[in-house]
């Protein structure tokens, strides 16, 4: 029972982690808490729905198409809603992200209606039993892809020139610009990467939780809680925060009370903010 709950928590936790990565990236490059992250996940899920279900494109081709579409929309949104406010005060930029989220969500509701869409299972939903332990292949894939992406992102940021430039621009825009880094391009790239990561998170959960305009709201908030939990400055922390949150939620639901499941996630976040404001993996301030 305990192990089973842990396994379930791991899968949903890696989805939270992917969204948390988006928050971390946006915080580093743009110095803004971007509350439209959940809606990026929703858009990703809808792109996959459009390509795979509506247009009946094979899933192996639909995936890259949906990722490309996510990147393109990320680029457009950055140009329309984020770029014009680069020099604005922090609070204004924060509000702009909330506004962008509301706009996107309602746009999708107008286009697709408020009802959820079913999504076919991609990875198989019939559980495999290892003695009493039940493993749903779908959850295995979600966890695997989540971790793989987090590792890839880390390698990209640490090892490639582009990644280094992104980090440099995040640390000190002016100095980075003096060193010949195109800061604005670098910020755009960060936004696109964050949107794609969110989009993939959305695609991964589409078969589990259906696709609808509102699907990003709660999951976006959980991603935020995961980012705060792990440390808003740390890529590894985001993933760790997501996993901890996912597991904590499932254990709370399984052993304490399912009525307080969501409350526990946010209580955990508040506790971390009080006792370790820089997050579990963050440096001490």
């Amino acid at each position: 029972m305990l192990l089973q709950q842990l396994i379930q928590g791991l899968a949903i936790g890696s989805v939270y982690g992917l969204l948390a990565l988006g928050y971390v990236l946006m915080w580093q490059a743009w110095a803004v808490l971007d509350f439209a992250r959940g809606d990026a996940a929703m858009m990703g899920a809808f792109f996959l729905l459009i390509f795979n279900v509506f247009l009946k494109i094979h899933i192996l081709l639909a995936f890259p198409l949906a990722i490309a579409a996510s990147a393109l929309t990320g680029f457009i949104i950055e140009r329309l809603a984020y770029r014009p406010l680069v020099g604005a005060r922090e609070i204004n930029r924060l509000i702009a992200t909330i506004g962008a989220g509301i706009l996107i969500r309602n746009l999708y509701r107008v286009m697709f209606g408020a009802d959820p869409f079913p999504f076919p299972t991609i990875f198989g939903e019939h559980p495999i039993y290892i003695k009493h332990l039940m493993i749903v292949p779908q959850n295995l894939w979600i966890t695997g892809i989540g971790f793989a992406l987090a590792i890839l992102l880390r390698l990209f940021l640490l090892k490639t020139w582009r990644g280094k430039a992104m980090r440099a621009a995040a640390q000190d825009r002016e100095t980075a610009a003096l060193m010949g880094i195109r800061v604005k391009n670098s910020m755009t790239l960060t936004f696109v990467v964050a949107t794609v990561l969110g989009g993939i998170a959305g695609m991964l959960i589409a078969p589990l939780y259906f696709v609808m305009a509102d699907m990003g709201v709660l999951i976006g908030l959980k991603g935020f809680a995961a980012a705060v939990l792990g440390g808003i400055e740390s890529v590894t922390g985001a993933m760790v925060g997501g996993i901890i949150l996912g597991i904590a939620e499932n254990l709370a639901g399984g052993f304490i009370s399912s009525g307080y499941q969501t409350a526990i996630a946010f209580a955990l976040m508040i506790l971390v903010l009080i006792f370790r404001p820089s997050g579990i993996m963050g440096r001490r301030l």
Partner: peptide, 20 residues
Amino acid sequence: VEAFNPDAKDMSAQILKIKN
């Protein structure tokens, strides 16, 4: 007797408990 948030998506904790 298990509750869930009206917009919750992941019901696995509750379902596992019920199964158990």
